[in-house]
Design a protein around this nucleic acid. Sequence first.
DNA 1: GCATGATCC
DNA 2: GGTCGTGATCATGCA
Length: 422
Amino acid sequence: MDALYSALEPKLRERGQWELFEEIELPLCRCLAEMELAGCRVDSKALSDFGGLLSRRAEELESDIYRLADGEFNINSPKQLGEVLFDRLGLSHGKKTKTGWSTNADVLEKLRGEHPVADAVLEYRQLTKLKSTYADGLLKALDPDGRVRTSFQMTVTATGRLSSTEPNLQNIPTRTDLGSEIRRMFVPEAGNVLVDADYSQIELRLLAHISGDEGMRAAFLSGGDFHAETASRVFGVERKDVTHEMRRRAKAVNFGIVYGISAFSLSQDIGTTQKEAKAYMDAYFATFPGVRAYMDRVVEQARTDGYVETLYHRRRDLPELSSSNFNLRSFGERVALNMPIQGTAADVMKLAMIAVWKRLKAELTQARLVLQVHDELIVECPAADAEKASTLLKEEMEGVAQLSVPLTADAHWGKNWLEAKG
DNA sequence: GCATGATCC
DNA sequence: GGTCGTGATCATGCA
């Protein structure tokens, strides 16, 4: 240990990363160990009933698909499905993959109006995914005490996020009503509740802070609906005149900006022409000039240094930026834009976890952290402590860093994960 | 073991 | 003119 410290400490200090190690990564280890040990209770009866329901509905769809396609084949094989859809039924194909025509959800959605089989396959895929990965997968991972215990990895991602394996509890469905039923099966012990607290727009708030863009900061300081505020500014209309569609598009631009999106991808995302998407991005940068300046600055700095870093000096090397391959270089530029944002969000969340963990130990000894999903923390505690735990989570998550925009977190509790999500 | 496609943030 | 959204994990098919 001593030998390792004397070898590694100077190296970390040189890179300005000693505090990252001592104040974030190291104390987080114990916190994660306790979370892994605690695990989360799952209602196995409900889960296996739900699995049965999924099977029955998938079987119905299977025979629908064979009837519509006029023959049996393996629906789970993209190769066979592609042959049926595009060769035999002659439906219009979209993009290619390495091995044939793509049959992914984007393509199938475009085929909806063309042939009823597309819809059936989409639904079949949703059901079989839920069944195999979640219903069966979680039951297989269940420990004898009725709890599932994930393994959190601290050294896997390039940005500083955690990852979760065997089972992955960071990709439990939430988007569709049917999928989010899985969350209903994550339950507390009798007499307990689950408290769920999530950061609101943490990555965009960090972009506002790091870029220093005055307009974006003002939008967050106003405390309103950020996507609607963005729409109002970008489309040049009064806040009250922002339509649902304007907000939807502004949201897609906000989202894309964080990842260094192109006009092409944005147009795909919101279903417009590339020209219109480019106009939105131009309007966005005209509205938030500090964001564009930051994006230019960070890529330039990354070219000079060969790396990017977070507010807390977590670093990612970027050899891609000096590649002669256009695609690889473009990838490096997107990473240079995204890593400081996503990585700082990860740093902030890790600091919050340590702070929450300490306070729970001191003030709510019956409460324990059970899960983290990037911008969301889940605590299990006695029902009587729910209010206190919610307040504690919100306070620690919001107070963990002093930025030029407020960090906000919302907390709810309930008798299962879906309810607690609020 | 790679390719595809699903899920999450 | 081509390219085209960060970061992950897991199940399945198929060579």
